[in-house]
């Protein structure tokens, strides 16, 4: 089988997308909620993974999710904006907050970046937790879903909404895949591999990371807007560090930097949570155990390990021709 690393990765993605759609369309009513939840988490995971391509791992991504949810829900409920406009506003909010927070956040990296993003997300959480504007800790209900009846799709039907979320996820995935083959995306990869060298050849690392952060913020806010529509409810819990941790786990388990990995990891996380929580009391304990096991066996994540396995096999079958001066 002659398949490059990249085409194998894309094939896994296409197979996962087709499989998800087939399973969702043939699943029962209750499972529809899980498919929608997994697809929304996968969009969120793509947002985190796109940023990770530039070498930055955020631990406050729930801030963007919460911001998107509250921008969407706040405008749709309190201001009676049409949901389509409110989604656009959530995207804009993600970009703008990404640019503002990024101005100081992306000057750091590694553990400092983790701390800065966590701190900002917790600030947002404590604001919505106390703010009377959104009923504080009680949260706010009545968030409407996008009205797509003009194209014959009633999103209040759980099956339709799940299909809609999966399709959005596929679009975001294709967008992310497109971005990384453009010069901008290639530069993000170069920055992850060697930021100092990018500076030394005349690239402004800060600008690229800032743009990646804003783009990631927009996609994170989109997932938040979907989340608010899914539950029809705004809760400060959307912006807690647990949400940031869950998406990080999904991406790491699936394989960071592979996009497809985060999507598969999201599906797995939602599925395991459901199975474990309906069978065990201390289900997070079991979940943690499973993830430690996966991390030990597959340190590069599920998809990352599959791709590495392909590379090793390829290297075995095609030994590099030795150069005359390497004897």
């Amino acid at each position: 089988m002659v398949m490059t690393r990249n085409s194998l990765r894309l094939s896994i993605g296409v197979a996962a997308a087709i499989l998800a759609l087939i399973m969702q369309l043939s699943a029962g009513t209750f499972a529809q909620e899980l498919f929608a939840e997994a697809a929304i988490l996968a969009v969120f995971a793509l947002s985190l993974d796109l940023l990770a391509r530039s070498g930055l791992v955020s631990f406050g991504h729930a801030g963007f999710l919460g911001l998107g949810a509250y921008t969407f829900g706040g405008l749709a409920v309190l201001q009676n904006w049409p949901p389509s406009l409110a989604i656009a506003a959530a995207l804009a909010g993600g970009i703008i907050s990404g640019l503002i927070i990024g101005c100081f956040a992306v000057r750091t990296s590694g553990a400092f970046f983790i701390m800065v993003t966590l701190a900002v997300a917790e600030m947002f959480f404590s604001w919505v937790f106390r703010s009377p504007l959104f009923n504080g800790a009680d949260g706010m209900g009545g968030v409407p879903r996008l009205d797509m009846r003009s194209v014959g799709l009633d999103l209040n039907n759980p099956r339709n909404f799940a299909t809609f979320c999966i399709l959005i996820c596929i679009c975001v995935w294709m967008f992310a895949e497109y971005i990384i083959i453009t010069p901008f995306g290639r530069t993000l990869d170069a920055i992850r591999q060697n930021a100092n060298r990018v500076s030394a050849v005349g690239g402004r690392v800060f600008s690229y990371r800032l743009a990646a952060f804003a783009l990631s913020g927009a996609i994170g806010a989109l997932s938040g807007a979907l989340k608010a529509q899914h539950t029809n409810f705004l809760s400060p819990d959307l912006a807690t560090w647990v949400v940031s941790g869950d998406v990080l786990i999904a991406v790491v388990i699936g394989g960071m930097g592979t996009f497809v990995g985060g999507i598969i990891g999201s599906g797995l996380l939602v599925y395991l949570k459901e199975v474990l929580s309906s069978n065990f009391g201390h289900w997070y304990l079991f979940l943690g155990g499973i993830f430690i096991g996966v991390a030990l066996i597959l340190p590069r994540g599920i998809v990352g390990s599959v791709l590495d396995w392909r590379d090793r096999r390829h290297a075995r079958n095609n030994p590099a021709p030795a150069r005359e001066d390497e004897a």
């Binding site: 497109y178 971005i179 083959i181 453009t182 010069p183 901008f184 995306g185 290639r186 530069t187 690239g203 600008s207 690229y208 743009a211």
Partner: peptide
């Protein structure tokens, strides 16, 4: 050309 995000490399 590195900032270009709308055309493949």
């Amino acid at each position: 050309v590195a900032p270009v995000f709308w055309r493949p490399m």
